[in-house]
Amino acid sequence: MTRTADTLLEEIQGPTPGQMLRKRVFGHQGLLFGVAVLGLLLLVAIFAPLLAPHDPYAQDLLARMQPPVFLGGSWEHPLGTDHLGRDYLSRLIYGARISLLIGGFAALISGLIGTAMGVAAGYFGGRVDMAVTFLINVRLAMPVVLVALAIVAVFGGSLQVVILVLGFLLWDRFAVVMRSSTLQVRSREYVTAAQAIGCSTSRVILSEIMPNIVNNLIVVVTLEMAHAILLEAALSFLGLGVQPPTPSWGLMVSEGKQMMLFEPWLVAIPGITLFVLVLAINLLGDGLRDVTAPENRS
């Protein structure tokens, strides 16, 4: 066997950073599961009109509460029908849109607020830091579910209101994590160097600090997205979130609750999909943290 220059180079250098990253990613079962399931659910949400066998809003009062296929139902309604005769599978498929929309936008809004506050606190320190820390304390002291319920009750339950309320309530973890991450990189040489050659503050923050803390940001985005999805479901379940007839999974559990005594699957099915979605997002977040954490790079 002859050694070409390429293989020789490889032996000397060892694996490239890209190869090491690929190895870490593909060796992480949780991360792969999270990506696969979340990707699948995203596709389901995007192509909902093509996938849903029926109109999720169409009522058929003659075919109410038909059991799903595995409980002796027919393939006409694979997951049965609800108390108004609406196809459960179709509502479930459209429900993925609601959960992902709310999770995504709530995480986006709270991420913008929290990151701005956290980075400002970490970079400027002093009074800015004191003010931000104080605001984080105030936010943590307020009971999230109760405040969200009260505000939704005042403004009325709709998709936009729920997204805004959750977006303005869930920024605390972004602020905490971004603040400590910024503190860690603020005094590095490359930041000092950028300041020394006269870069503007916004340039230092955007092109020197942000790229170095974006790993942590992505992990918090996934965690808060999961958090927002669970909260939306809880609000809708309590009747003060997304309003009927929108097919929200939390709302479906709440509607099924009336019939729980005889038809427990009405409650079980939307709960399982919620669980799977949140589990996938959490595993993705945990996986990203493991893969990007420097201490795990051997």
């Binding site: 479901a233 939390g250 669980f275």
Partner: peptide, 14 residues
């Protein structure tokens, strides 16, 4: 961390 609390409660009742 992934189970909705209201659903867990209802399932326990079931």
């Amino acid at each position: 961390q992934a189970m909705p609390s209201f659903w867990f409660g209802l399932m326990m009742i079931v």
